[in-house]
Amino acid sequence: MEYTLAIESTPDTVEGGTGILLLHPSTGETDRLDTEFLATDTDAMLVISTRTTAREVKQKLEYYEVDESRATILDTLSVERGYTRRQSDNVRYASAPDDLDGIVEETEAFLAEHDGKLRVSFDSVTELVYYADEERAMAALEDVLELLAEYDAVGMFHLADEVHDEETVAAFRELFDGVVELREDGTVTSEF
């Protein structure tokens, strides 16, 4: 299955199973690229958030006019922070940002329960490394990338490049089929 990419300086389409790494400055405005990725050519989307709560993700989707009825949000922060949470059809919870098994299980459940063109956004790998560690984060991402291939879905994974050393960034780059780089000045380049 082919998926349209509506992100500047990227190929017009990518095949199902493609994992894309979004490298960005820690202060970079990634929401625009993320929502462009999610909103285009999509039947259902999963937003995995290790950086913001489900409420904040909903606000982002609303602001960028992404069809929320197609979105499922996996909130990994609210349980750990003690916020009130109500599981629903479109909001799921993992116990903490380092609940890697829970994140992988919820991703698989989403992919198994939905048909058509499926997109996954993982915001952010940087936070995942912070809460877990690099090795465990990498293993979990490998599992999620295998699921994308198995279910013919596509995913975009956020990594704030200047927070990590060059070796770490290089190791993460190797996991992905494509890399989109957002620079400080807002320009976008990609390598697929």
Rank of each mutant, 00 (worst) to 15 (best):
I20W: 08
H164F: 13
S26K: 12
A132S: 15
F37C: 11
L21H: 03
H24K: 09
I48S: 06
A112C: 03
R183G: 07
L21R: 05
L128G: 09
R55K: 15
L175G: 03
M138F: 10
M45S: 02
A96Q: 06
L77S: 05
T72V: 15
T30V: 11
A6L: 08
D152H: 08
E15P: 04
E80G: 11
S95W: 14
L77N: 09
D123R: 06
L148T: 03
E146C: 01
F37T: 08
H164D: 12
D185R: 11
L128N: 14
E127N: 15
D165C: 15
D165A: 12
V144S: 00
E65S: 14
Y131F: 14
A160N: 00
G178A: 15
V57M: 06
R85P: 01
R81H: 07
S88K: 01
A109I: 13
S69M: 07
E8M: 04
Y93A: 01
T40H: 12
R32W: 01
L23N: 02
D31V: 04
R70A: 13
A137C: 15
D41A: 09
F110Q: 07
V57E: 00
L33Y: 03
G28Q: 10
V104M: 05
A160I: 07
L148V: 10
L118R: 13
G82Q: 06
A132H: 05
F176T: 05
D123Y: 00
L74T: 12
E167L: 03
S190F: 14
S88W: 01
T18E: 08
E135T: 14
T42H: 01
I7V: 13
L38M: 15
D185K: 05
V179M: 05
E146G: 08
T10A: 09
T18K: 10
A44V: 12
D143F: 01
R136L: 14
